[in-house]
Design a protein around this nucleic acid. Structure first.
Lengths: 253, 253
DNA sequence: AGTGCCTGCATTGTACACAATCGCTTGGAT
DNA sequence: ATCCAAGCGATTGTGTACAATGCAGGCACT
């Protein structure tokens, strides 16, 4: 296992156009891996290992981890490295409280400000989300559900709210991945579609009501189960690896 | 050349308190300097200059700037360095909208959860704030006003809200420093005291009403109404400029 | 004289080397 | 046998050298 990703691949993923900087690429990959549950909560994220996997120095990894920590999906323990966050039930409750508050405000603002173009984009996202679920890609589905809510925040045209929502959605996705009973429907896209209808009709009360019910549905699906995923970094990112290059110490610790 | 100034007047402990606090010291000093308007909006924050001032390497400075950027008080322009943020009127409006929302939620939660000890701390902060204003230290007063609201958020016992509030309060302080009409009272401590009374009495409606009025008072003191359609190109585009003349104490040596 | 290119300079971006720290293990004493 | 302590290995924290990028000023050309 002396593999390394030697150059950095520019745009390896479809659907998520990040600006081409190394930073964002690394950040996005780790982020997605966590939200899609390819990295289980509690998994240690070694700087050196990640650096070799992505073919960048620890400097870049460190910055990405710092961003992730600020968003709450990674926990940074001084002198002890980073681990994937594993929100407690209490933390989950706080996050959901904040999300209800934010989603209500966002919905009201979106009813006022959303453009036709944005509504079209939202519908596009719902259909992609639906496609993911119907082909059984649960992880991508959870992520796309979150991106829907984030896109809605953008329609609200309030920068601080967008930023906060990004953090809340990330953590919510982590919670869902961690606590949701398997087999159930997740962020049902039907509810998303109805929501778009209400917004398009500029029916604020209906939109807010739908959103609140949507929130109810989401957290009513949670339980306290827990399942695990791989904690082998090389396995998780195996789709990025090319058998190539130096016989460094890709061997695990 | 290696003259390394010693402006670390606030450092309580002598010597270099190692192990991780360097970050926080640098961060806090820059933060305070911005909120107390010793660094004007638009001022460029050179990594090397700051490094020499604080006697640390660019690594530390960079991390501090990154944190400040995430909180919205510093703007990080790729390959072009960091500058003190100068919120536009529109940005200020968005921030105030978000703050109203958050303060309402925080107030309600604080009425439910605040302990006697926390209320005592809040009263203590108000008196300190009052002391600052009465001795004419406007900058410190603004900062303490903000810290009062942050302390209140802690009483609400909701981690995501605290984090968001920290960012909002920082940016609000910056806005106040930038837009407030001179001579007026700022975050009047009387209102803060009344608010504590209502919370202590567990009177939720009254507390929320007081808080909303408090918000009204704050932004009624700002100049960010229509008059800001300035014909001064330099003012209009101030957010694009690097303040070279203002260099006073931070820039060139 | 005005405009556009081009080179030199200053600043940021990245990688790497070294130092500090933490947890674990091993050895010894009670 | 258990507990404590000191050594050790592994990992993170920090400083610094070097590369890349953007900007300013000068020069040639129209």
């Amino acid at each position: 296992m002396n593999e390394q990703l030697q150059p950095l691949k520019k745009q390896p993923r479809a659907g998520k156009s990040r600006s081409g900087t190394q930073d964002d690429v690394v950040y996005a990959h780790i982020f997605d891996a966590i939200l899609e549950q390819r990295l289980a909560p509690g998994t240690k994220l070694s700087e050196e290992a990640l650096g070799e996997i992505f073919g960048v120095s620890r400097t870049i990894i460190r910055r990405a981890l710092s961003r992730l920590a600020h968003e709450g999906v990674v926990l940074l323990r001084p002198n002890r490295g980073a681990v994937v966050a594993s929100p407690s039930v209490e933390e989950a409750r706080q996050i959901f409280f904040a999300r209800r508050m934010v989603e209500r405000a966002i919905t009201e603002l979106a009813v006022e400000h959303a453009t036709a173009e944005q509504l079209a984009e939202l519908r596009q996202m719902v259909s992609e989300e639906q496609a993911c679920f119907s082909r059984g890609d649960r992880g991508a589905g959870i992520r796309l559900s979150g991106e829907f809510h984030l896109k809605l925040a953008e329609a609200a045209k309030n920068a601080p709210l967008i930023s906060f929502q990004r953090s809340l959605v990330s953590q919510t996705s982590l919670i869902i991945a961690q606590y949701e009973s398997s087999g159930r429907q997740h962020c049902s896209y039907d509810e998303h579609n109805e929501l778009i209808d209400a917004i398009e009709a500029r029916d604020k009360d209906k939109a807010v009501t739908l959103m609140m019910h949507h929130m109810d549905h989401i957290d009513s699906k949670l339980n306290l189960d827990e399942d695990s995923a791989s904690d082998d970094l090389h396995a998780v990112f195996s789709h990025l690896l090319q058998t190539k290059k130096k016989a460094g110490r890709a061997a695990t610790r």
